Amino acid sequence: MNVDAVRAWSRTVVHDYTARESALYALAIGAVSDPLDPCQLRLVDEVDQVVVPSMAAVVASPGFWARDEKSMEIDAARLVHGEQRITLARALPAHGRVVGTSRVSRIVDKGEGKGALITVCKTLQCEQGEHYGKAWQLFFCRGDGGFSTGGATDLILDDEPLPPLEASPSREPDQCVRYAVRNDAALLYRLCGDTNRLHIDLEAARRAGFPRPILHGLATYGLAAVAAIRAFASGDAPKLHGLDARFSAPFYPGEEVEFRIWDEGAHVALEGHVAARGAVVISHARARFQ
């Protein structure tokens, strides 16, 4: 990894999107299972439409920057999206223009053979400069550790680093909700802009070490947002203004996921379990409501 090129990288994306794209995102993450539910219908009805707040992780995306920017010398084939966070100051519009500026905010060298961590912060605002919020992605670069002189290094490029994510409570959950995810879930979600072959191509998935194509991490993230909104906001999507989560295991289209949910007062804690494999696919998750 060329750490100087990584720390200097930034990209601004102007994203014009329509009500149709907001509706497609809601459908792709399974947010509309009952069209007779007024809150669910509002996610796809252009008359009084609102967006699922987790869409902040998707709009104005910088794309697959680690692969596109050759000067950074990142082993993009071994890069894994490890965590996602959003914090919103106000709701995204159902359609319009959003400006997203992404930059690297932290680089951690875990040492030779141990990989590196890169955090990218995306600031979202309208064309006139009014702030919508921020989204953070943490990437685990499995093939890029050991670039620092003298061992492991933590380069903080923000004023202060994000606090580490916390594990879920040890007590029994307050709620458990199950979702059967469609077999074509990855095919739907890729229409939201992420066309990585890992999610559609059997051979690409096998080369990456998976038996078959996996669901996009941000699709699973959207599922977690829907579970939290339904459980603790009576389905009123705009009440969600923050969601942090770790992608702890791959999730396959067609599986059933159980979200275990804890009411912690200031926030809601979540874990996503696939009982058929004994896998936790979403962990260390926190949802915050207005």
Rank of each mutant, 00 (worst) to 15 (best):
L24Y: 09
I29N: 06
D34A: 01
D34K: 01
L36S: 14
P38E: 00
C39G: 05
D48Q: 03
M55H: 03
A57F: 10
V59F: 09
G63H: 03
R67S: 08
D75N: 14
A77L: 12
H81I: 01
Q84S: 08
A89P: 06
A91T: 14
L92A: 13
L92E: 13
G96S: 11
G96Q: 08
G96W: 02
R97P: 05
V98K: 03
G100S: 12
G100Q: 12
R106E: 15
D109G: 14
K110L: 13
K114Q: 08
A116H: 04
T119I: 07
T123W: 00
Q125H: 09
Q125E: 09
Q125Y: 00
C126L: 05
W136P: 01
Q137V: 12
Q137A: 09
L138E: 08
F139G: 03
F140C: 12
C141R: 01
R142V: 13
G143P: 02
A152H: 11
T153A: 04
P163R: 07
L165F: 12
E166N: 03
A167M: 11
P169W: 04
R171C: 09
E172Y: 07
E172R: 10
P173G: 15
D174T: 08
Q175C: 06
V177E: 15
D184Q: 12
L187S: 04
Y189P: 10
G193Q: 05
N196C: 04
L198C: 05
I200P: 01
D201R: 13
L202E: 04
L202D: 04
R206A: 03
R207I: 02
A208R: 00
F210W: 07
P211M: 00
P213R: 05
G217L: 04
A224P: 01
A225W: 08
A231S: 15
F232I: 09
A233D: 02
A233S: 07
A237I: 09
L240G: 07
L243K: 00
D244C: 10
R246I: 15
F247Q: 11
E258V: 06
F259V: 15
W262Q: 01
E264K: 01
V281K: 00
I282P: 01
